[in-house]
């Protein structure tokens, strides 16, 4: 009736769409780094797209299923396998009892997701399953997963064919509408104008690269040193996922899912929500470019993605329905 954590992998946590409505108490939203991959993983197993999933980094965890389950992997591709047989991502799988999933090499992306049909058996903290590591709350026992832990599943799946460790459900979702390899679009931040003219120019024309010290709190960038024309101390105010802050060193950080609720560093820009999945999947030393955009364009792109997700979800139910009737 559960998943056993044989090896926890690097910073594996339970996440959902994030904890909303408590930022005025300093409680940050947390939630999946790549919300779209989380939703896609859920859609593939016919869960509500906001169901809690397992988020993991490279090297991934080793997980043993003690019961049959329908699962899906999405986001990063870390070459998942069962007993040496490679698994595809973005495809539902029916796993037999006592089957172990592990991961091989990093093929694409930074952060992976595993969904289980019916979800994990957990209790919410402040209306969300997301793990708040700092407060040691939410998720599974409030923290990153540890070896030997067992997470119960909500649904009992039956599997008539016990001769195989897993069967692939012949339907692979396309995720091309959610990622791109172009410049990340941003809405200029309130302090962007305070950069010198040449630094403003540099922000949109330079190559930045993602530093290894990046984590769920923020993606640190290495790029040209940016300079402010005035150096007034800022008064702290709210920040959000995607906010690009400028450190006194002249280097930038993009705030991610575990960001603080407020901050006092100058805000260069805000990566638009539609581009956050692309950003979340950037990995160490990847090149990053920025391109300014307008609020109406940002909204349009986000709502288009919502439409794509809606279509994706419908396609999943049709395909799986057909599979079960087959």
């Amino acid at each position: 009736m559960s998943i056993q954590i044989i090896k926890p992998g690097l910073f594996s946590t339970i996440q959902d769409e994030g904890r909303k409505g408590f930022q005025h108490l300093g409680i940050n939203p947390n939630g999946a780094m790549d919300i779209r991959a989380m939703q896609i993983a859920n859609a593939l197993v016919l869960n509500d797209v906001s169901q809690a999933i397992l988020e993991f980094y490279f090297p991934g965890p080793v997980l043993r299923f003690t019961q049959p389950a329908v699962i899906a992997l999405s986001g990063a591709d870390f070459s998942a396998e069962i007993n040496g047989v490679k698994l595809s991502i973005n495809q539902p799988l029916l796993i037999s009892a006592n089957t172990t999933i592990q991961f091989g090499s990093k093929k694409w992306g930074q952060v992976g997701y595993l969904s289980v049909q019916g979800g994990f058996h957990l209790t919410q903290w402040l209306n969300s399953y997301s793990t708040n590591v700092k407060a040691a709350a939410g998720g599974f026992e409030g923290g990153i997963l540890k070896p030997g832990q067992t997470i119960d599943l909500n649904l009992k799946t039956s599997n008539k064919d016990t001769s195989k460790e897993f069967s692939i459900i012949p339907w692979k979702g396309s995720v091309k509408d959610f990622y791109h390899s172009n410049a990340l679009q941003f809405i200029p931040g309130y302090e962007f104008k305070k950069l010198t003219a040449s630094s403003q120019e540099l922000f949109s024309s330079s190559v930045f690269s993602l530093l290894g010290q990046s984590d769920r709190m923020g993606y640190r960038l290495k790029g040209p040193s940016l300079e402010l024309s005035t150096n007034n101390e800022m008064i702290s105010s709210a920040v959000t996922k995607g906010t690009v802050q400028l450190f006194p060193s002249g280097q930038c950080v993009v705030l991610m899912a575990d960001h603080q609720t407020t901050g006092g560093y100058p805000r260069m820009g805000h990566i638009i929500a539609a581009d956050l999945p692309t950003l979340a999947q950037k990995t160490r030393n990847d090149a990053i470019y920025f391109k300014p955009t307008s609020i109406d364009q940002a909204e349009k792109l986000f709502l288009e993605q919502e439409q794509h997700l809606h279509k994706f979800t419908n396609a999943c139910s049709l395909q799986l329905d057909a599979y079960h009737r087959h």
């Binding site: 909303k20 709210a238 609720t261």
Partner: peptide, 18 residues
């Protein structure tokens, strides 16, 4: 509205675009 975040001299309203 999903979050209202008061700060020293500003207030931020987070909303659900969808």
């Amino acid at each position: 509205i999903t979050d209202i975040i008061p700060a020293y001299s500003s207030i931020t309203i987070v909303y659900d675009l969808a």
